[in-house]
């Protein structure tokens, strides 16, 4: 289906475009960024690199959520929240995650 191809295209774009000064894995390991319940990456310790990384990743996530939402008739926020739950579950021990109350805690 058309949406599926679009989603695939988005995914391909995201995967290939990841050439950042700071890569996501090490940023999470250093505790600079962490996963949030809203499905987007948050900045734990602000630095230009961390904000640049989060802005780039979040823009790409949003495009992916939108493609999934359109394909499944869901709203953007529904998809984002679902992805947020998964991302927090998937976070490695020691990485920062945000509680629904808005607190950064180490998983």
């Amino acid at each position: 289906m058309k949406t599926t191809t679009r989603l695939a295209a988005v995914l391909l774009l995201v995967c290939s475009g990841l050439v950042m000064a700071l890569d996501l894995g090490s940023a999470k390991a250093q505790g600079l960024v962490g996963e949030q319940p809203d499905g987007y990456l948050g900045v734990v310790k602000a630095s230009p690199d961390a904000i640049g990384l989060a802005a780039d990743i979040n823009a790409k996530r949003r495009a992916a959520y939108e493609a999934i939402a359109k394909k499944n008739g869901a709203t953007l926020d529904q998809v984002a929240v679902l992805a947020g739950q998964k991302a927090i579950e998937m976070s490695s021990p020691g990485a920062y995650v945000k509680t629904p109350g808005g607190q950064w805690v180490k998983k």
């Binding site: 989603l7 995914l11 995201v14 995967c15 990841l18 996501l24 996963e35 990743i57 790409k60 996530r61 992916a64 999934i68 394909k71 499944n72 008739g73 869901a74 529904q78 998809v79 679902l82 992805a83 998964k86 991302a87 998937m90």
Partner: peptide, 20 residues
């Protein structure tokens, strides 16, 4: 079974893309 389909797409996004 709609919800399951969304979850499947979200799962593949979170697992296969390098965005997480």
């Amino acid at each position: 079974e709609i919800r399951l389909k969304v979850e499947k797409d979200v799962d593949s996004l979170t697992k296969d893309s390098k965005l997480y």
